[in-house]
C-alpha cells in the first residue's frame, strides 16, 4: 500500500520529477566536461563567438545600408536579441535532443528506458553542454543594446516593457516544443534529424530580420502553420508600434503564451506516440 501511495505521489509530481532528473543528469555531464578543462574553455569562447559572428553579419549589413525593409538598426537588433535569447535558452536546455537518433541507432536508448525516471528528461539532459550558454549571453547583450538604443524611440509603458521578458520566455518554450517535436520524429526517421534544424536554426535566422523583407506567403506560413512568428515577430511589432503583417489580427501580439501552450501539448502528444512506437518496434 505504501508502495502504491509513493508511486501515486511520483506520478502526481511529473513535472518536478522531470526537472529533478534533468538536473541530476545535466550535473553529471558538466562534471564530465570539466575533466577536459582546456577544451571546455575553448568551446565556451567559440560558442560565444559563433553567435557573435552571426551578429557581425548584421553589423556589416548596416555598415552598408541605413535600414532593412524599413526597419532601423536598433529595431533589427531588437528582433535579433529577442529571438537570439529565446533560441539560446531552448538550445541550452534541449539542444541535445537532435542527437537522439544516434542513441536510438546504437541501442543506448534502452539503458535510459531501464531507469525509474522520465525518458524525456534523460534524453534532453544527455550530453548537456554548458558552452551553449554563450549563445544566450550573446543574445542578451544584443537585446540590452537594442533596448538602450530604443529607449526614446518606443513609447514604453508597463505593458510593452513586460512584453519583452514574456516574449523571450514564450519564444523559448515555442522553440523547445519544436525541438521535442523534431526529436519525436526521430523515433520513426532517425536520419531526418536535420529537418528539425530548418525550423530551429532556420527559424531563428528568419526571425532576426523584419517580416517586411520576406514574401508574404512565407510570413503567413510562420504565423498559421509553424507558429514561429509568435516567438518575437508579432509581439515585437506591437512593442515597436508597427502594424501586424497583412491578414493577422492585432490581438495576435498577445497570443504568444497560448500558442506556446498549444505547441507544448502537440509536442507532448508526439513524444508519447514516438516512445510508444519505439517500444513496440524496438528500432
Amino acid at each position: 500500500m505504501a508502495e502504491r501511495l509513493r508511486t501515486a505521489g511520483a506520478h502526481g509530481s511529473g513535472a518536478v520529477e522531470v526537472l529533478r532528473t534533468y538536473r541530476l543528469v545535466a550535473a553529471m555531464w558538466i562534471r564530465s566536461t570539466m575533466t577536459y578543462r582546456a577544451s571546455f574553455a575553448l568551446t565556451l569562447v567559440t560558442s560565444f563567438c559563433v553567435t557573435f559572428f552571426d551578429f557581425v553579419v548584421i553589423l556589416l549589413m548596416f555598415g552598408q545600408v541605413q535600414g532593412l525593409g524599413g526597419f532601423s538598426f536598433a529595431e533589427v537588433a531588437f528582433l535579433y536579441g529577442t529571438t537570439g535569447t529565446a533560441f539560446g535558452l531552448a538550445d541550452l536546455a534541449l539542444g541535445s535532443l537532435q542527437r537522439m537518433g544516434r542513441r536510438i541507432r546504437d541501442g543506448s536508448l534502452d539503458v535510459f528506458l531501464l531507469r525509474p525516471v522520465p525518458l524525456l528528461a534523460q534524453v534532453a539532459a544527455d550530453k548537456f553542454a554548458l558552452r551553449r550558454l554563450g549563445r544566450v549571453l550573446q543574445g542578451l547583450m544584443v537585446l540590452m543594446w537594442s533596448l538602450v538604443l530604443l529607449r526614446h524611440e518606443v513609447a514604453w509603458s508597463w505593458g510593452t516593457a513586460l512584453m519583452v521578458p514574456a516574449m523571450v520566455a514564450c519564444g523559448a518554450v515555442i522553440f523547445m516544443a519544436v525541438m521535442v517535436l523534431g526529436a519525436s520524429a526521430q523515433f520513426w526517421l532517425q536520419d531526418a534529424a536535420e529537418v528539425a534544424n530548418s525550423f530551429t536554426y532556420g527559424g531563428n535566422t528568419l526571425l532576426q530580420y523584419p517580416p517586411t523583407i520576406f514574401a508574404q506567403d512565407l510570413v503567413k506560413g510562420v504565423v498559421f502553420v509553424v507558429p514561429l512568428a509568435f516567438v518575437n515577430w508579432l509581439p515585437a511589432l506591437y512593442v515597436l508600434g508597427r502594424p501586424a503583417p497583412a491578414g493577422v489580427p492585432s490581438w495576435a501580439a498577445f497570443a504568444s503564451p497560448l500558442v506556446a501552450l498549444v505547441c507544448c501539448a502537440v509536442a507532448g502528444l508526439a513524444w508519447r506516440a514516438g516512445v510508444r512506437s519505439y517500444r513496440s518496434t524496438g528500432s
Binding site: 508511486t7 511520483a10 553529471m28 562534471r31 564530465s32 575533466t35 577536459y36 541501442g107 543506448s108 534502452d110 539503458v111 528506458l113 531501464l114 531507469r115 525509474p116 525516471v117 522520465p118 517500444r279
Partner: peptide
C-alpha cells in the same frame, strides 16, 4: 512491465555485458 515500466525499474537490476551504464570520464 509494459504498463508500469518505471515502477518496475526500481525493483529490477540489469547488466548488459557489452554496454556500460557507467560514466566514461568520471
Amino acid at each position: 512491465p509494459a504498463r508500469e515500466r518505471t515502477r518496475l525499474a526500481r525493483r529490477i537490476g540489469v547488466v548488459f555485458g557489452q554496454r556500460t551504464t557507467l560514466w566514461w570520464d568520471l
